[in-house]
């Protein structure tokens, strides 16, 4: 690792440490990661109960020693379902963010760098997308292509990439007039080569920082899509869906909705705090330099 990378990491680390909330968020995020991997790898082997197993005899039991988070109306253990549901939103969020970053960032970079008609067209297209709240647009797409987790991921993909295109374009614009870009031209590189070799590596950092903050948004939107019935379908133990399922029982068995809702809240908050700290660690340091 170069000295620059090492000292960057050291300073980033120092700053994050100072920001305890970010650190707390970071720890939850790390735990979440670990959980995702564990659940994906071990399947249901580690869970106390089968998340799909129905047992009317123990339906609507409040949280206790047998069932940590209680049971739902079909007698399924909510704790097992919450844990089993971890990978659903995580998968969607990471796929959507990574693909949007890669695709949107690249499209934006090319548009911003090449300018002219290409930039015009691209900006108008992204403007159309950005004019709608992401959720509304995702709903529209999801309704069009039908319900299901994979479909909701596709809907989110369609809707999410323009944001990264916009950032990519802005960053590319600010780099465009750098002298090392001019030097790359003078060296004889084609426009395509200049974007690949010089523009993309230099806009990666700001895109990544935004992406980290963005994960929480995608998770939230994903769970909302499921909540309104466009995403996960029963009996999948996806958190948003679980909140929906528990609506009718809010008075009698609040844990059916509130527990998964709290899980969503904690994860989204953790990503938000961590992403905020990350952004602060990069921005003022860059300014201080």
């Amino acid at each position: 690792m170069s000295l620059l990378e090492r000292s960057e990491l050291k300073l980033t680390g120092k700053y994050l440490l100072k920001n305890k909330l970010s650190l707390a968020g970071g720890m939850v995020v790390a735990a979440y990661f670990v959980l995702v991997v564990v659940v994906l790898l071990s399947g249901e082997a580690l869970l106390p109960y089968d998340p799909y197993a129905q047992n009317f005899g123990v339906a609507l039991q409040s949280p206790g020693l047998n069932h940590l988070f209680g049971t739902d109306d079909l007698g399924r253990d909510i704790f097992s379902r919450v844990i089993a549901g971890v990978p659903f939103d995580a998968e969607i969020a990471f796929v959507v963010v990574l693909v949007s970053l890669a695709f949107g960032g690249t499209v934006g970079a090319f548009a911003g760098y090449l300018g002219g008609r290409i930039e015009e067209i691209m900006m108008r297209v992204t403007d159309i997308f950005l004019a709608f709240p992401a959720l509304v647009l995702a709903m529209a797409v999801a309704i069009a292509i039908g319900p299901g987790l994979t479909h909701s991921m596709m809907a989110l993909l369609v809707v999410w990439w323009p944001w990264y295109a916009r950032i990519g374009r802005g960053e590319a614009l600010s780099i465009k007039s750098s002298q090392y870009i001019e030097a790359a031209h003078a060296a004889g590189l084609s426009e395509f080569q200049v974007v690949i070799r010089h523009v993309l590596p230099n806009i990666l950092m700001p895109l990544l920082v935004y992406a980290t903050l963005d994960v929480s948004n995608v998770i939230l939107t994903g769970t909302i899509l499921s909540f309104i019935g466009l995403g996960a379908q029963p009996p999948q133990p996806e958190w948003g869906r679980m909140v929906f399922d528990g609506q009718d029982y809010l008075a009698s068995a609040w844990w059916m909705s509130i527990i998964p809702a709290t899980a969503i809240f904690v994860v989204v908050l953790a990503f938000s705090l961590f992403g905020d700290g990350l952004r602060d660690a990069f921005d003022p340091r860059l300014r201080r330099r």
Binding site: S178, Q179, Y180, A183, A184, R197, H198, P201, N202
Partner: peptide, 10 residues
Amino acid sequence: DPISSLDPRM
């Protein structure tokens, strides 16, 4: 400008 004529990430 020796600073800005070299790509800082290369």
